[in-house]
Design a protein around this nucleic acid. Structure first.
Length: 426
RNA sequence: GGAGAGGUUCCCGAGUGGCCAAAGGGGGCAGACUGUAAAUCUGUUGGCUAUGCCUUCGGAGGUUCGAAUCCUCCCCUCUCCA
């Protein structure tokens, strides 16, 4: 049995932990059941959820039993932790739909065969709670004074905190209690914003069951430029290939800040730390290769080998293929792939030749294929010299696309440095 | 329930009758520089069948030649009091 805590620690996963020594003993003594909750507030997880997922995978690999709990019940309440404002309430049906989709999504990350891992949904036990009974059994163990003193609520004391949200922590504590009673779950993990909620659950278990339970939080990931990990202005980086294509997903991690590279390799890959630590001393060119490996490994984990390979090949083609030093992070399976001809993995669509005959304004095409959110934006891009057809900059007034632009049956449009779209002319 | 403050474009925030598609900052996008990085500098940032037209300043009405700005009602948030 691998040492789970040591593994997490060396990879930088641990922000806070309760009673470390006692927990370490317990983990050493035999398989331990631990859980992380995910609230289905969208129909896909995003890159920010990747860290807790990885933690569950490490847990399973170390021979323990992870519980992945969907919070369809708690999502109906809304967690105020770390939020300065109440977010809009979702319909119950929407939440359940989301939960179903996420369930499908996560099933590839963990081995959910019997005894290996469990997938639960807290709506199953929260929906039938009876208010007065619940208040008497659970509610009496919570001190309002103490809850209000918590930092998480303090922020909200100015902006307003509804009673609904105030109950979130109580429900989350109750979840932990239920999982302790029914599954023997003694450890809850989560983002550091969950620390207070996790402690509440540990307290509740101690009071009602006189038993020890443990908590562990992960650092809240921000990129070196202080942005929330996995968020771009265009929206989150989703794990769902429908929402964020494997190519874009790959590119997100390919373009991480230098300063984030080592951390991210530890968080999001399974490469050994001895190899990862060496990236500190890399030269410029090798730094870029290491980023490629990072992107490849994460894409492989989330979307599978094939998608990772073709995303890499597509990127290599567009940005110029560069080999990867085989001594760099040698455990990565990227070294087994030879960069052959690139696959058609850049976004593409088709266009009837008919439409080109009289010349089609580029801005119209750019808008249609989704490279610009509006036609005005598309025109602006052209004006500012940000649009390239077959890698040639087009200027204002020279933006009519005709059959002359077709190369090998297709037109390659590029916006900015990194966004490509291939249009197959039929 | 009472008193006060406030709701402006992605965010913060100015604007108190025409010069307002709305200052400034942040963020985003594009360009230069680079290593598909960061930092820096420049431009840009509602939409459209585009030298004009349409929609936007919590919502609905109204006054006016003209309203983000004035009036009425409503909704929401915050602070203090109950």
């Amino acid at each position: 049995m691998k040492n789970f805590l040591a593994e997490l620690e060396s990879r930088g996963f641990i922000r806070q932990i309760t009673e470390r020594e006692k927990l370490a003993e317990k983990l050493a003594a035999g398989p331990v059941t631990a859980y992380i909750g995910f609230d289905p507030t969208a129909d896909s997880l995003h890159a920010g959820s990747l860290l807790p997922i990885m933690a569950l995978v490490h847990l399973q690999r170390a021979g323990h039993r992870p519980i992945l709990m969907l919070g369809a019940g708690t999502a109906r309440v809304g967690d105020p932790s770390g939020k300065t404002e109440m977010r809009k309430l979702l319909e119950g049906k929407e939440i359940d739909d989301n939960a179903r989709k996420i369930q499908r999504q996560v099933s590839r990350f963990l081995d959910f065969s019997p005894g290996k891992a469990i997938l639960l949904n807290n709506h199953d036990w929260l929906k039938n709670l009876r208010y007065v009974d619940f208040l008497r059994e659970i509610g009496r163990h919570f001190s309002v004074n103490r809850m209000l003193a918590a930092e998480a609520y303090k922020i909200r004391m100015e902006k307003g905190l509804s009673f609904l949200e105030f109950n979130y922590q109580i429900l989350q504590a109750y979840d932990f209690l239920v999982l302790f009673r029914e599954q023997g779950c003694v450890l809850q993990m989560g983002g550091d914003d969950q620390w207070g909620n996790i402690l509440a659950g540990i307290d509740l278990i101690r009071r009602l069951e006189s038993a020890d339970a443990f908590g562990l939080t992960f650092p809240l990931l921000t990129t070196a430029s202080q942005e929330k990990m996995g968020k771009t202005a265009a929206g989150a980086v989703w794990l769902d290939p429908e929402r964020t294509s494997p190519y874009d997903f790959f590119q997100y991690f390919r373009n991480v800040d230098d300063r984030d590279l080592e951390n991210f390799l530890g968080f999001f890959t399974f490469l050994p730390m001895e190899e990862i630590r060496m990236v500190k001393d890399l030269s410029e060119a090798e730094l870029n290769q290491a980023k490629t490996i990072l992107a490849f490994e994460i894409t492989k984990f989330v979307h599978g080998d094939k998608e990772a390979e073709s995303a890499w090949k597509a990127a290599a083609q567009l940005f110029g293929a560069k080999g990867i030093n085989p001594n760099l992070l040698p455990s990565s399976s990227i070294h087994k792939i030879t960069l052959g001809a690139a696959e058609e993995d850049i976004p593409s669509s088709s266009l009837p030749r008919q439409r080109l005959v009289n010349g089609l304004p580029a801005w119209e095409l750019i808008f249609e294929v989704g490279l610009a959110p509006s036609k005005s934006e598309a025109r602006r891009l052209i004006q500012q010299g940000g649009v390239y057809i077959n890698d040639e900059k087009i200027g204002e007034g020279h933006d009519l696309i005709s059959p002359v632009s077709v190369r090998d049956g297709a037109i390659l449009i590029r916006v900015g440095k990194k966004k490509y779209h291939k249009i197959k002319v039929i």
